[in-house]
Amino acid sequence: MSMGVEARSESRPRLILFVTGDAPRSLRAKANLAETLERLGIDPADVVEIDLTADPTQTLVYGIFATPALLRPKESGRSEILYGDLSEQKALERFLTLG
């Protein structure tokens, strides 16, 4: 999992994880996502992490107001979002595999 919003400038990331510093749910989301990515064999580099407490303007840019949130940008603009600490494994796997 790459860290920092600057990763977006190189190419459109496949996934963006929005967190808020060290908030417990954000920490849980990072851990749950990392574990599932590994289990499904998805390259962690496909995920960019954005800390909204560090850069609140990203909240407005992406329209992400509930955190943590996992976003899959789409060319069409209709991005897919998965809210929560990603503790519901089946929902997370479905989001990662069907996208």
Binding site: N32, P56, A66, T67, E80, G84, L92
Partner: peptide, 18 residues
């Protein structure tokens, strides 16, 4: 967003940051 899904607990920390 339309079609947003839920996978666990979430909070409004990001909203408060904005």
């Amino acid at each position: 967003g339309a079609g947003a899904q839920i996978a666990g607990e979430f909070d409004l920390e990001g909203l408060l940051a904005a």
